[in-house]
Each structure stands twice: as structure tokens, then as C-alpha cells.
Design a protein around this nucleic acid. Sequence first.
DNA 1: CGTTGACTTGAAGGTATTCAAGCTTTGTGG
DNA 2: CCACAAAGCTTGAATACCTTCAAGTCAACG
Lengths: 215, 215
Amino acid sequence: MNAYTTARIALPPQPTHLNLQVGSGPAPVQPLSFFAAGSEIYAQGEKAGAFYQIEFGAVRIYRLLADGRRQISAFHLAGETFGFEADTTHHFFAEAINATAVRTFRVAAGVDMSRQLLPLALKGLSRAQEHLLVLGCQNAIERVAAFLIDMADRQGGLRQVDLPMSRMDIGDYLGLTIETVSRVFTKLKEKGVIRLANLRCVEIVRQDALRDMSE
Amino acid sequence: MNAYTTARIALPPQPTHLNLQVGSGPAPVQPLSFFAAGSEIYAQGEKAGAFYQIEFGAVRIYRLLADGRRQISAFHLAGETFGFEADTTHHFFAEAINATAVRTFRVAAGVDMSRQLLPLALKGLSRAQEHLLVLGCQNAIERVAAFLIDMADRQGGLRQVDLPMSRMDIGDYLGLTIETVSRVFTKLKEKGVIRLANLRCVEIVRQDALRDMSE
DNA sequence: CGTTGACTTGAAGGTATTCAAGCTTTGTGG
DNA sequence: CCACAAAGCTTGAATACCTTCAAGTCAACG
């Protein structure tokens, strides 16, 4: 794990987050770790045994095939939790997309966290299944539309949606090439469904149209 | 829920299964329900609140899009458990593929099953993520190869693999059409990688070759 | 023995990929 | 602050893969 700490990163207002401590009394402050854009939070094969809540920034969770193909199984944004697995070793890589801070919750030996972890695991399962539907049934436009709707919903349903990740990341998440992602963005712009303030910031002009497309 | 009970179904030797009862003492016998091939175990929108362990048979879990496209998110075989969800209502359909018997575990109000359910949820999450990798990165041959390997492993790694589901089911699981599934089977036969004893029974002749293909 | 449903095979077509080139944005050093 | 380089993104043309549509085969069942 490659945390880097620096005083140059100004902490934005912290998102509200679940209190995951066990028991009562003065909650111990969990250690906060900082990661530069592109740096690794954990790697496939590393020992698991903690989970992480994002204070700010964004994280991609992915696997690699032998020939280098990459499948991003999830993006996580501020306030969200990731890192728990069925096994004692990680089967995925987790990387900071941007400058990111995470709060680490180590699972002490002998402590049963089932009650806290089950809802998180079920949430993750539900998301994975939704993603499965997209990859299994939908074409390029539908995939991108579903992705934008999801990102919008997770950012409070506002018109302005922040995309912390690159086109490459989006492609590897949706099972498309960067070229196809780019072409779909262009098409959505031409149809007047979205506008791009800049590459990483989408304005959803016609949310209804986008929702129609996403299924 | 559409259970049907009949004396005509002979019970095969029961698979070993986890003891999921809470507490100790004489374990209460959980009700056993029988389902005919194609019958519904639960439907999307129905109230959840139980989980199911398969005594014999096989089950498909799926969702439908508005236009009728279907994504099968999982197959479950004898001994496996399914039916728990993040929400209080089901977001999926569950159907018996063959004549199937399931043991139903109702979750009593106020009883905390987290400890029992967490490993099952994590297992499901892990499977869904594996499936995501297949749908996101792999072509038709790789998908079918991965599917066959998975089925073989879940049936004890034997050469003879039973496919309880139709080509249609396999297609809807792998994000392919039945024609493509059929063509891939034909190609694998021509290459001498598999043999078909009959439509629902595959002999894996060269497991190494199949494993190479599956990634 | 004929009918039905499931599967296979073939040919044509469409969608996404690949390869290649050009454009934009971002960061760095002068 | 500008110039340049590098990376990321967009666009175009050709290709590949999978789908669609259609016909034909096979197996199970009455």
C-alpha cells in the first residue's frame, strides 16, 4: 500500500459518512491516507483485511487478464465504501483516480463485523448485477446513457455531472473502446442530450431522453 | 410463489449442505418445496425475506428489460443458496430450470442473520464480478469456454459436465445469441476440445485447451 | 408417424473494433 | 507568459465479429 501524505492537498468539506465503529463511547479516529492520482491503494494478491471509506476523490476497482485487457468492475466516489472481499486476499486492484483520501477500517482479529459489512456487501452485489445487465444486454449508446444516469444519481441528481475518470476508464468499465465512448459522447452532444463544459464535466440537458436511452 | 408437490418425483441422494439454523438444539426441518421445469420461484417486485437452498435441480436468476431482453445473472445448482437481496423486495426473477426442490429459510422478524448471510453475499459478489470480467472483456469463444470451465468446476471438475439449461439460457447468461452459442459449440467440437454426448451433456476432452481459451 | 420445440447452419447485414491521423488540453521549461 | 512536448481525446476508413433472418436438421412425444 503506497500512501503518500502531503500538506499541499487542501481538504474540502468532508462528506457525511456512516459511523462504522463497533461499540459506543468516544469513537476512535480512523487513520486517513492520501493517494496521488493513479496510485495504488491495494493490489490483486495482497492480503485483505480492511475496508476503506472515501473522504474525497474517486477510486477504480479492476482486474486484468493475462494479455492486459482490463475490466473496471466499479467506480467509487466520496462517501462510498470498498475493499471487503470473500477471500483473505484481494482479487482486484484499487487505484485512486484523482488525489484521494480514504479512511481505513482495519478488521481486528476476532471481531465480527458481519452486521456492518452485510449491507455494504449487498449494495455491492446489487450494483454488480445492475452492471451485468448493462454489459449483457445493451449497446454502446445505452451503456453510456446508463453510466451517465448512474453517475448523475450518485452525485445528487444534478444537471452538472463530474466525471473524474478518463475515457479509457469509462471504456474499460462499459466494455467498449475509447473510440466508441468518444463517438457516443459526440452523438449525444449532436442530439442535444448532453453538453460538455469540459472533458471531465457533463451537463445533462435532457435527462428524460437519456433515461429513455438507458433501457 | 408457485410450489407444486408431487409424489412422482423421486428424490435423488441429497447433497450435503450447510447447516444454516440459528442456535443449537434439534434443528427444525425447513420446508421443502418442489418446482416444475420453467416454474417461478419468485418474481421481480415480490416481497423478499427468505432465502433458498437447492436440494436438487437448477435455478436461473434473471432480469428483464422493457423490450423483453433478458439477462441471466446467475445459475444455481444443487447445494447452492440464493434469494437474499439488498432490498425488501426482489429485483430479480428466479425460475426452476428443471424439476427442482428448494429448502426455504424464512428470516424471522428481529433475528439477525448477518453472520450467516455475509459469506453468501460475498460469494455472490465474487461470482458477479467474475461474470462481469467475462462480459466486459471476452469474445464469444472465451465466454463459452469460461462458462464450461465454471460449470465443470462447480460439478467437481469431472470430464462429464451436465448443462441443465437451454442454449437460450446460456446465450442470455453470456450476452450472446443462441446462434452464436451454437456455432461456438460446433467450433469447439471440430477442434476436439469438447464432445457432446447429447445436447445437455458435454464431455471436456481437453480441459487445458479450454482453460487457455477462457482467458 | 407426424408434429412440435430446440438446436444447427448458412448468408447478409450491422455495430463495434482496429488502425491511423489529426486535434485539444495539460503540464513543463525556457 | 509563451513554446513545446506529451497525453488524452476525436474523427475517419477499413475490418472483424456477432447478430439477424431464414431454412433445415434433430429429438422427444403423442
